[in-house]
């Protein structure tokens, strides 16, 4: 890790100013410090944003809940209201890293974390995502990589919360050039779909302030499968959410993690599920629709049947 300066921001106005000259916002620090230790990212200054007022609250509401960007993953996991209202978010939070990580990692940091691609994270490889000219994973060991991408880089988004929040149709509120911008989860990651250099759609200086989660989908679920049983990145994750009335799904959403640079959603699948009752044939058809355009590579084809199983199972969990 190279030497850097350090400052604590006290206001939303000063934070971006302090970070102007190759500065990075610093909250939980898990992702950033890891990158800096391996010289993937260097910073002239780290701007501690943990003292910014008002961003560490969980606020419940009738139509939506608001979670501050500085809320820790552990707070989300352990919040009884969230467990009840957004079980999928609770389940996604419980699978983030380990207890030690969840105690410091924040909602904002989880959403904004960089790719975990082992080429990107390798100190001695200059891959496409780091400004090089080759996606090593395409030619190399792509067991952990994407089935869908809009560009040459095949590293997937690995944010559990991003996946769960996509299914819940949450909105990230981002401070951008002194104003508040509202981004859906699709919008928050869209740039990574198109641009190999991007991990999300945030510009330098952008700061995630909070996330609004509509309560309209009363049922939600999240499932992931990793090589190990705990403290391991998902090979594939799946989040689903819907309103269920009279046994029928309303406004259902399915999102997949770890198989695309964005939380992967297919409108045709969501449309298909709308108004349906949950049975094996229906969820299987939905899974087919989600995975229709999968582009398996040499080592990640297993993610297709795995995702198929997770979609089916997660949807069936909505039965309650």
């Amino acid at each position: 890790m190279k030497a850097f300066e350090y400052a604590t921001a006290r206001s939303l106005d000063s934070a971006p100013q302090l970070a102007t000259d190759n500065g990075h916002y610093f909250a939980g620090g898990n992702d950033l410090l890891g990158r800096m230790k391996d010289y993937i990212t260097d910073a002239k200054i780290l701007v501690n944003i943990k003292s910014l007022p008002g961003l560490d609250q969980i606020e419940s509401g009738r139509d939506h809940w608001t979670l501050g960007a500085l809320v820790t993953i552990a707070q989300i996991e352990n919040h009884p209201g969230i467990k009840k209202v957004f079980p999928g978010l609770h389940e996604a939070a419980a699978e983030v890293g380990s207890q030690q990580i969840r105690n410091v990692a924040t909602l904002g940091g989880n959403l904004a974390q960089h790719s975990r691609c082992w080429y990107y994270r390798h100190r001695d490889i200059v891959c496409l995502k780091k400004g090089g000219d080759t996606c090593y994973a395409r030619h190399g060991d792509n067991r952990y990589h994407s089935l869908f991408t809009g560009n040459t880089c095949i590293s997937p988004v690995v944010s559990n919360l991003g996946t769960a929040l996509a299914a819940l149709d949450a909105t990230a509120i981002v401070r951008r050039s002194g104003k508040e911008a509202r981004l859906s989860m699709s919008e928050l990651y869209h740039r990574a779909w198109e641009n190999p250099l991007a991990h999300n759609s945030l510009d330098p200086g952008d700061l995630i302030l909070k996330v609004e989660i509509p309560t309209a989908r009363g049922r939600s679920a999240y499932l992931q499968v990793s090589d190990k049983h705990a403290f391991d990145w998902a090979l594939v994750s799946c989040a689903v959410a819907a309103q269920v009335s009279g046994g029928r799904l309303r406004r259902p959403r399915v999102a997949l993690g770890c198989i695309s640079p964005v939380p992967y959603q297919v409108e045709a699948a969501n449309d298909f599920l709308d108004g349906k009752t949950l049975d094996e044939a229906t969820v299987s058809k939905a899974a087919d629709l989600v995975l229709a355009n999968a582009q398996p590579l040499e080592f990640n084809g297993y993610k297709v049947p795995l995702a198929h199983a997770l979609i089916r199972r997660a949807l069936l969990k909505l039965k309650g």
């Binding site: 067991r143 499968v225 090589d227 090979l235 999968a294 582009q295 398996p296 590579l297 040499e298 080592f299 990640n300 084809g301 297993y302 297709v304 049947p305 795995l306």
Partner: peptide, 16 residues
Amino acid sequence: PAKVLAALGKVPKPVA
């Protein structure tokens, strides 16, 4: 999991 699914014949061939 990747190898188990492959052994079961469930893994599609690479297309890309």
